[in-house]
Structures are given as structure tokens and as C-alpha cells.
Write a protein that binds this DNA or RNA. Structure first.
Length: 561
RNA sequence: UGCCCAAUAGUAUAAUGGUAGUACAACUGAUUUUGGUUCAGUUAGUCUUGGUUCGAAUCCAGGUUGGGCAACCA
């Protein structure tokens, strides 16, 4: 990526400030961060923000970022998810230093637990989960000590070993930290460190029947990897006290946890649980459905890594609750696509136009049009122009309102890269439906050599009937009809946008579209940005709409109504 | 009636005791062979009450509002 070396005027976010201070004071000479996904779902746009943050920090400052799968709950975790997560991070354009797993450290974590027992800081509790909950107290009442809290170190050591050896049934015993049952921070009221769970682990198989809890695993993994800045979301703030307590009592490398606010985006949801529901209940076709806010969904929709990185960069990071306008994401992708997309003409809803003064002998005239007017070195493609064309049905009105710059009886428009035409006659069927428009063209108005002296306000996209190829279009819109489906009454699924997908099975495209590859991005003139979908087959090309073009005319019409 | 975190235009984010700025959105206008792009402009903000100070978005105190915390989830 060619970064322009302008003087750094952009202000630092609060983490960059902390890091610069740490570097300046000599606390660290380089930093280490990690991205710690749990492999139990697909990555979404919120994760992209965290990825850009963690990897971005070590791109900006000396250091590196590890990818560490937080796989301490074998019940929900799968290798499939590991693969999709890796692919998504790479697609976003980031490289991790080491690919690691919390499960790599199970032996060390077990030793840490033993150490705590030996120091009299952990004990085996025989209480049921109901009993533990009951003794935990509430926000306003202190908890009560478990009757097993005073067991001897020897007994705890023996019991914990036997827990590991599989001598006790699932859920019958836990290892708990011995802290303070009256602590104002509920997490410090003797948190559970280890539980018995006979579950096949995606990496360690059946080696273990006890697994560490998040608090016993995360900070310890950070410490083992000597992570300097462990960045997580705000809901982990109360965990920091326990994070620090464990590192302190264990006397291991002091990683530090910092928290930022997770990013929320309107008109969508970003909770793995809800996303999973949308997939399972078939509201979408899969995790990579282009309407999903997952990285794979955005990728399939045609978003570019550059545009997502730009978006994450623009929204920044902070510690306050937020709801980001999805229009910023759309702005970022339009901004990038405008620079790189190949211009093509596709008619979504055809209306036949016959140029009555054009030769009726089957003449095919090739006109030239730029692939991208934004590119000073643009290439060109040839488009066949003939007597019979299709234009967009919405581009013609028999009784147009004021400011309608398109085709209407007696009105003139330019056909992009071709000629100016004038509408002479409207042909209707017996039901009064318009079936054809008869026009005349101005031969001297050809693009590139226009000597007609006539200026028209409207330019239309078009395709030649005989040479048109038919393609399928999938027009995606936002998944929800309300900004925040989670805060509405009832189930969030009640607020799904019923028109989030419109399929046009036969649209008419200029022949050059045939040569489009999967890596290409297109702008269908006046319609939006599109990319080839994986459902494309030998007989039919399928295109997904990434985003529409800004449409001030549509806005104008809405105001009128 | 606990503990923790936060509060700046509609949205997001700067200003780190000294001119409240930027981007998106919205709205005007100019340019345009895409009603796109580009360009120019407009609207719009420090939660509240006190205090410290020559001076407060910033520091302090009280209040208000929003969020998190009582899974053998992460």
C-alpha cells in the first residue's frame, strides 16, 4: 500500500497515546498485540474494526500481532470457523506473526492452577452450579463463603488432580479462586477457574476433561505470549481486576488489558447469536449472504478490503457507546469503487426503442466508451449500436414532470457514447401499455465528433437488442427496516426488511460484460456497483449489487410525493 | 438502590486549561455525454448545576442520562 507521507496531522486515539507514552518512557521498545477470536462463528464488521486496530497498531509502531484462537469451550468451537476466520483476516490484508491457540497452553494453564492451589489461592468446590449462584450474592448483597472454601492445600491438590484424571462426573466440581465473597466486583467473588466437561476438543481431542474458563485462559495466554497491550471491548472492563490479580499472584509476565467500545452499525445486527439465527432460520442464504454484515458477506457483496479498512479508520475508536451510520460504510465503498470499477451498460427493465431514420439493413456500428472516466489512462471498449435498442423503462415518461431530463414525447436525450435521439412516437398495446418508442437520431451528434450544436440535459444508458446478453441481477438492500432492531419491541427478526433482495433474472447487458472476471468490480452506469457472484454458471452470469449510486433524482421524486 | 464505564452538531470523531475543528448525512449552487464523480457553500454541537481559574469541552463536586456487571460462555 502506498501511503502518502504527509506530516502526521491526524490526532492519536487513546491507545496510540498510551503506546507512544510507553515507547517514549522506555517501558517497551516494541509492542505485541493479539487478535483473539473464539472459533464459534464468522467474523463480522465489528471484528474488522478490532482487526484493523490490533494489526494497525503494530504496523504503525514496532512490534507484531498474533492471531490467537480463544478455544477454551469445546462445546461451540469448530475447525471450520478457524479456517473462515483466517481467510477473512488475510483478505482484509493483514498478516499475523504467529498462529496460536489458547489450547496450546492447556498444560501451562493446568500448572498455573496448581500453583494457585499451592499458594492457598484456589480451592476445589463441590457445590452445584445452583448452589454457587445462590452463594454468590447480588449487586447489593455480599456473597457467602462456600463450605468447601477451607479445604487443605493437600486435599485441593488431590481433588484437582482427580478432576483432571476424570474421576468425577461433568459439573460435579469446579476449581475456584479464593479471593473475596464480599467483593463489590462480582467477578472477584471466588470466580470459577476450571470446570469438568467431557467434550471433544477440536485440537486437543479427548486429552482433557477439564477446561479453563475465560479468565483463567485469556490473561495467561497474553502473558505467555508476552503481549504488551491486550485490547478488548468494554464489557471486559470488570474482568481487568481479575486479569491483573491472576497475573500478579502467578508472578508471570504482566500484560495489560485496555478496553474500547465495540462498534454498532445501524440497520443491521452484529451479535454472533443473532447472526446465527438469521442463518439457521433461513432469513439469509448463509453466513456469506451479501446482506450479512459478516466479512464474508461483505466480500461476496463486492466490498473491497480497502474500503473496509478505510471505514474502520474513519470511525476511529473510543470508549463511548455508539451507533455508526451505515451510510459511512457505503460512502467508503463507493469512494473506492468509483476509482476502480469498470463502466458497463446494463438495462434492468427494458423498453424497446426503434431509431426510424437509422439504416434498416442490419447495420452494426461500433461506438467507443471509456472503461473508467476517473482513470486518466483509461482503456476503452466497443459497444454495438443498431437500429433497435433497449433503454430503461423508467427513463421514459409520457407525461413527464418538470425537471425530468430523460426521454418523453418530443424531448431529446443523448445515448451514452452514441447519438442524441428524439422521441417521435409512442406505441401501445390494446391495454394501453407502452411497448415501443419510435425515435429519430441526429447523425451529426455522434460522441467524440458532435457538430450538432445541440445540448441535452439527459444521458441514458442503453444496449443493442440483437447483441444484448442476458444476465441475472441480485439487488440487495439493508437487512432491517429499523435502525436498531435489538432495541425495538418483540423479536429482532420482526424488523427484517421484506425487500432486502430483489432478483432480476433477465437483465440486458452490453456484450463486453461477458469478459468480466470474478476479481473485477463494475459500475453499471447510472445503476450501481456490481460484482460477479459465485453462483455464476456456464449459461448465466449472476451479479450482486454492492451498493447503488447516489441518486439525487430519486431523492427529488420522494420529496415531491 | 451496589460497583464500574461513558457523555461534544442527526452520526462518528478531534481540540490534552487559551479561536469548538474534520468526515459522513442533510440542504443550496456550479461543472458534467453517468441526476455518478468533482468543486464551492449552508444548516447544525460541548448533558445539567455549582466550584477552581484571568480563562473550562478539558480540572473538582453534586445531579441527570446511557451502557456494563449476579453463565461451570467468551
Amino acid at each position: 500500500m502506498a501511503e502518502i507521507n504527509t506530516p502526521e496531522e491526524k490526532s492519536l486515539n487513546f491507545l496510540e497515546e498510551i503506546i507512544e507514552e510507553d515507547l517514549k518512557s522506555g517501558k517497551y521498545t516494541s509492542i505485541a498485540t493479539r487478535f483473539p477470536p473464539e472459533p464459534n462463528g464468522f467474523l463480522h464488521i465489528g471484528h474488522a474494526s478490532s482487526i484493523c486496530l490490533n494489526f494497525g497498531l503494530t504496523k504503525k509502531y514496532p512490534g507484531y500481532t498474533n492471531l490467537r484462537f480463544d478455544d477454551t469451550n469445546p462445546e461451540t468451537e469448530k475447525t471450520d470457523y478457524v479456517e473462515s476466520i483466517k481467510a477473512d483476516i488475510q483478505w482484509l490484508g493483514f498478516e499475523w506473526k504467529n498462529e496460536l491457540y489458547a489450547s496450546d497452553y492447556f498444560d501451562q494453564m493446568y500448572q498455573f492452577a496448581v500453583t494457585l492451589i499451592q499458594k492457598g489461592l484456589a480451592y476445589v468446590d463441590d457445590s452445584t452450579s445452583e448452589e454457587i449462584r445462590a452463594m454468590k450474592g447480588t449487586h447489593t448483597e455480599p456473597g457467602k463463603d462456600s463450605p468447601y472454601r477451607t479445604r487443605s492445600i493437600e486435599e485441593n491438590l488431590d481433588l484437582f488432580t482427580r478432576m483432571k484424571n476424570g474421576e468425577f462426573p461433568d459439573g460435579s466440581r469446579t476449581l475456584r479462586a479464593k479471593i473475596d465473597m464480599t467483593h463489590t466486583n462480582m467477578l472477584m467473588r471466588d470466580p470459577i477457574l476450571y470446570r469438568i466437561k467431557r467434550e471433544h476438543h477440536h485440537r486437543t481431542g479427548d486429552k482433557w476433561c477439564i477446561y479453563p474458563m475465560y479468565d483463567m485462559a485469556h490473561g495467561q495466554s497474553d502473558s505467555i505470549e508476552q503481549i504488551t497491550h491486550s485490547i478488548c471491548t468494554l464489557e471486559f472492563v470488570p474482568h481487568r481486576e481479575l486479569y491483573d490479580w491472576l497475573i500478579d499472584k502467578l508472578g508471570i509476565y504482566p500484560s495489560h488489558q485496555y478496553e474500547f467500545a465495540r462498534r454498532n452499525i445501524n440497520y443491521t445486527v452484529t451479535s454472533k447469536r443473532k447472526l446465527l439465527q438469521l442463518v439457521e432460520d433461513k432469513f439469509v442464504t448463509g453466513w456469506d449472504d451479501p446482506r450479512m454484515p459478516t466479512i464474508s458477506g461483505l466480500r461476496r457483496a463486492g466490498y473491497t478490503p480497502e474500503s473496509i479498512r478505510e471505514f474502520c479508520d474513519r470511525i476511529g475508536i473510543a470508549k463511548r457507546e455508539n451507533m455508526i451510520d451505515v451510510s459511512l460504510l457505503e460512502f467508503c465503498v463507493r469512494e473506492h469503487l468509483n476509482k476502480i470499477a469498470l463502466r458497463r451498460m446494463v438495462v434492468f427493465d427494458p423498453l424497446k426503442v426503434v431509431i426510424t431514420n437509422y439504416p434498416a439493413d442490419g447495420t452494426v456500428e461500433m461506438v467507443r466508451s471509456e472503461d473508467n472516466p476517473e482513470d486518466p489512462n483509461t482503456t476503452y471498449r466497443e459497444i454495438p449500436f443498431t437500429r433497435e435498442l433497449y433503454i430503461e423503462r423508467e427513463d421514459f415518461m409520457e407525461n413527464p414532470p418538470k425537471k425530468f431530463f430523460r426521454l418523453a414525447p418530443g424531448q431529446m436525450v443523448r445515448l451514452k457514447s452514441a447519438y442524441i435521439i428524439q422521441c417521435d412516437e409512442v406505441i401501445k398495446d390494446s391495454n394501453g401499455n407502452i411497448t415501443e418508442i419510435r425515435c429519430s437520431y441526429l447523425p451529426e451528434s455522434k460522441s467524440g465528433g458532435d457538430s450538432s450544436g445541440i445540448h441535452v440535459k439527459g444521458t441514458l444508458h442503453w444496449v443493442s437488442v440483437a447483441q444484448a446478453i442476458s444476465v441475472e441481477l441480485r439487488l440487495y438492500d439493508r437487512l432491517f427496516r429499523v435502525e436498531d432492531p435489538t432495541s425495538e419491541e418483540g423479536d429482532f427478526k420482526d424488523y427484517i426488511n421484506p425487500n432486502s433482495l430483489q432478483v432480476i433474472s433477465t437483465a440486458f447487458a452490453e456484450p463486453a460484460l461477458k469478459n468480466i472476471r470474478f476479481s473485477d468490480r463494475c459500475q453499471f452506469l447510472r445503476k450501481g456497483y456490481f460484482c460477479l457472484d459465485k453462483d455464476t454458471s456456464e449459461d448465466k452470469m449472476v451479479f450482486n449489487r454492492t451498493v447503488t449510486l447516489k441518486d439525487t433524482w430519486a431523492k427529488e421524486q420522494k420529496k415531491g410525493r
